[in-house]
Design a protein around this nucleic acid. Structure first.
Lengths: 243, 243
DNA sequence: GTGAAAACGTGCAAGGGCTGTAAAAATCGC
DNA sequence: GCGATTTTTACAGCCCTTGCACGTTTTCAC
């Protein structure tokens, strides 16, 4: 699976590990494939947002994208996958976050710092400055996923993969597969998930993007402060406990 | 929707609220319906366990149960629902648990007491005394659900409904919809879920039922102890903090 | 009881998602 | 350029799910 050579190119910041190595399109062929894939996904998402998931057939997506139905399923495992194209990048953001913990600074403080300015894979640090149009688009997207049972279940499956990453990452500190690692990973994942859920819930209630992001930050900070209390003096903190 | 009269029958223990009111089959017709529904579900589950979910068609289930395909979908919303028939009872068990918190005893101590002897809806207090055959059946069931992507997603959806129940129940103490209630509900749900997941994971790894239950109890107790530390002196504890 | 009304079950048919197979076409390494 | 590999395509088919029309059963009012 590993490709030799072709290294040397610096991407991203200097202190961060390389992100999204999956998107490197080395050959001419692969570049085209990546473009086709992106185009199919974009067109499909647009159609779904416009008319609803069940109201659009895969045949329509294929026709709009100028390919055959079989080709669509060649790139995407299922109709739902057309919408959840960013999952690998999402998981990579979690991995990056978990890897960012250092001696003297546990995972909880890292997340506490992140909740105010960024937040992995959601980036609602910027949501205050979102245009109304962009906010409406995101609202529509989350509404689509939340309303549809199958899509909702798909999102939960993604969330569980995030949980496993947290548990695995913490296992490096507390012992792989130990009850301690499982519990800590589950609780931190719950804090992470509660934050994201709050963002989506408020957004779907019609709150402005900035307000929803603020609520999410409140929930995230509170959850992390609670865990900080429980894990004071452990490897998960190992740093200053904020007031 | 409410039916008048026909009350007066005492069911269950005296101090507990009435459980599973959904199963009352009052009329002749409803009694028959309940029987048919149960039979379809049982036969379907048997077939799925025997040959796998995707290898059994709904038409086969219908034929084996002696009804038409349309009737199957009349009782169950989807093929998956044939397996998740016990969801209402599961949720009722959570409701009962949440309702069991009293002044002077918060939700966390209630769960801490329960993790040793019972555990809502899983009842692994008895799993030590499970026959090998019964253990094999449960292992097979969880294996079926875990292996199949759609079924797995369905289980996660159920878990999220449990989460909402916890949040709603805690909202009565900490304020409905407040960040405090959301965070506490999410964390307690994570503890609950981690416990159940541990039971299933160990079972699927081939551990004996008693051993898997013991591991699950360890995880549950640890998670609850962690939360007890974080919530000492709050309405979620409001009682003695066990060592 | 008895009749009408509502609910329920059935068979038929059809739409849409998804998966194979085999042939045609495009692409890359050399 | 050229051959080997991969991709794309068309076609056929299975299965889940639903709508429709009609016969059957249960319930309720009298």
């Amino acid at each position: 699976m590993h490709r030799k050579g072709q290294d040397g190119k610096r991407v991203g910041g200097p202190s961060l590990p390389a992100v999204t190595p999956l998107l490197q399109a080395v050959g001419l062929r692969e570049r085209k494939k990546a473009r086709t894939r992106q185009q199919i996904s974009d067109i499909a998402t647009g159609l779904f947002l416009e008319r609803g998931f069940d109201e659009v057939t895969v045949a329509e997506v294929a026709k709009a994208a100028g390919v055959s139905v079989k080709t669509v399923f060649n790139y995407f495992g299922s109709k739902e996958d057309l919408l959840f194209d960013r999952e690998p990048q999402w998981l990579a953001a979690i991995d990056e976050l978990v890897a960012a913990r250092e001696p003297g600074r546990g995972l909880i403080p890292v997340l506490q710092a992140d909740v105010e300015v960024r937040w992995p894979a959601l980036d609602f640090g910027r949501w205050d400055r979102l245009t109304d149009e962009a906010a409406a688009g995101r609202r529509q997207f989350y509404g689509l996923v939340t309303a549809h049972s199958g899509l909702h279940a798909r999102r939960l499956q993604m969330s569980e993969r995030v949980r496993e990453r947290f548990i695995a990452g913490i296992g490096e500190d507390l012992g792989d597969g130990t009850p301690e690692a499982i519990v800590a990973g589950s609780l931190i994942h719950a804090a992470y998930e509660a934050t994201g859920n709050e963002l989506i819930s408020r957004l779907l209630e019609g709150a402005p993007a900035g307000e929803a992001a603020a609520r999410a930050r409140t929930v995230g900070a509170l959850a992390l402060a609670t865990l900080a209390r429980a894990y004071a003096g452990t490897p998960l903190m190992d740093g200053p406990t904020p007031a």
